[in-house]
């Protein structure tokens, strides 16, 4: 990046420094109100991701476990709760992007 700074041509124009909005004069600020869905997606991702990350040590621990049947019951319970949450999210339509 430094090389480019030195080598690059420089010509400062006010227009060039403006916000690009397809050549039209820029209007309004970029920090406006965005759809809450973006945030909702992020937070739901976080919750499900934590759920799934719990399964990684589970998958590694299964091989060495003494009582593997017990492990499977725990896994099924875990997935059942996860699925309940998932079905709730889908039914609430909070992730539907078209109105």
């Amino acid at each position: 990046m430094t090389i480019s700074k030195v080598l690059g041509f420089k010509r400062t124009l006010v227009r060039k420094m403006d916000i690009y909005e397809s050549g039209v004069n820029p209007s309004g600020s970029a920090t406006r109100q965005y759809d809450v869905k973006y945030y909702l997606t992020a937070i739901l991702f976080l919750l499900f991701d934590v759920d799934l990350v719990f399964l990684l040590p589970w998958a590694l621990g299964y091989q060495n476990a003494q009582d593997q049947t017990f492990m499977i019951y725990g896994f099924l319970f875990f997935m059942a709760i996860l699925l309940v949450g998932y079905i709730f999210v889908i039914n609430s339509n909070s992730l539907k992007w078209e109105e």
């Binding site: 690009y20 920090t31 991701d49």
Partner: peptide, 20 residues
Amino acid sequence: NNKFSMLGALRACAQMVSYE
């Protein structure tokens, strides 16, 4: 600080986390 880039970034981020 541009509306296009802001929207692009938001979309990219939401999409990446969803597929993760």
